[in-house]
């Protein structure tokens, strides 16, 4: 018992939770806006990989860190555009297209990496983002190290949560996004373009997802390696349902998952002698499934999710 308390009371644990949650925040916000507009984006896992690879490579080739972030976002936007064109005007199955984009983006990223670096044994490193030092806040006892010694990308993720909530609930654009995910004909009969909105949202949402990947290679680690995304994209798809498509709850879900993960690592070192490590690795996923069962039964899906819209269909 005392070990558990000790973990929960360490600033280090909370800092790790927020750090682990950061890529998930990007991913879930990106997935959430796409689904709000009626498009499931299962390309997310591949878009994470593409973002991680593109951001890292841009910096490795000499771009600045923020230049790398921009390149990662553009890579995400590119794969988002592929998914959008296949699913929106062409109306193909969103599941099939999404899986296709994931396979394509992942393989292409590995291919480019291998082609650029044919025979390195250990991945080359870059200068990664340093934790920000916010005067005043970062020096607070406990709270400072727990919450305010993160890299800029973590703060960008938190800002995106607020910005997404504001856009979705307070602006005409947000109303249009919510409407197009519920009843596209409501949007068309008010003179707006269903295709324009959906394509735009999927492209921007995918760019946000890619930032989650960029965080991995430019903030969490300082290199790119195979399999590093490791299912984070899929977790984001589940978190979106957990969050009932609300940005605030999405943040909460990502933090919970981050906390579970941070907790299991620490618990492993405490009691790892008696219990196999794999059990701890499973924990965040098991808890996610449990949370989904409780929350998602009442999930209020966007009504037009997965339903393609065809103009003037007869």
């Amino acid at each position: 018992m005392s070990e558990i308390l000790e973990i929960l009371l360490s600033a280090n644990f909370w800092a790790a939770s927020l750090r682990i949650a950061t890529p998930l925040i990007f991913g879930v916000i990106g997935a959430l806006v796409c689904e709000r507009a009626g498009v499931l984006n299962l390309g997310i896992e591949g878009i994470f990989t593409a973002g991680a690879m593109a951001g890292w490579m841009a910096v490795w080739l000499g771009a600045g860190l923020w230049g790398g972030v921009l390149v990662a976002a553009l890579a995400g936007a590119f794969f988002g555009l592929i998914h959008a064109i296949l699913t929106v005007p062409l109306g193909l199955s969103q599941h099939v297209s999404g899986i296709g984009v994931t396979l394509f983006a992942t393989s292409l990223s590995y291919f480019i990496y291998r082609t650029a670096l044919p025979d390195v044994s250990s991945p080359p490193r870059i200068e990664e983002f340093e934790p920000l030092n916010i005067p005043g806040l970062s020096d607070l006892p406990f709270v400072g190290p727990a919450l305010f010694q993160q890299t800029p990308l973590t703060f960008l993720a938190l800002f995106l949560v607020v910005a997404t909530a504001y856009v979705l609930y307070r602006t005409p654009l947000g109303l249009a996004i919510q409407a197009v995910g519920d009843n596209p004909s409501a949007v068309e009969s008010q003179g707006l373009s269903v295709y324009g909105l959906r394509i735009g949202v999927v492209v921007v949402g995918s760019a946000i997802m890619a930032l989650g990947g960029a965080f991995l290679t430019m903030s969490a680690f300082d290199a790119f390696f195979f399999g590093m995304v490791n299912g984070r994209g899929w977790i984001c798809i589940a978190l979106t349902v957990f969050a009932s498509w609300r940005p605030g709850k999405a943040l909460l879900g990502a933090l919970l998952f981050g906390a579970f993960d941070a907790f299991q690592v620490r618990l492993q070192t405490e009691v790892g002698a008696f219990i196999p490590g794999q059990v701890f690795l499973m924990m965040p996923y098991l808890l996610s499934i449990a949370a989904l069962i409780v929350v998602a039964r009442k999930a209020d899906y966007p009504r037009a999710l997965l339903v393609p819209y065809f103009r003037g269909q007869r």
């Binding site: 005409p172 919510q178 409407a179 009969s189 966007p302």
Partner: peptide, 14 residues
């Protein structure tokens, strides 16, 4: 042609 997840006002302003 109404978005059911929005208010009446939102639908009119859309």
């Amino acid at each position: 042609t109404l978005a059911e997840n929005l208010s009446a006002l939102d639908n009119i302003l859309l």
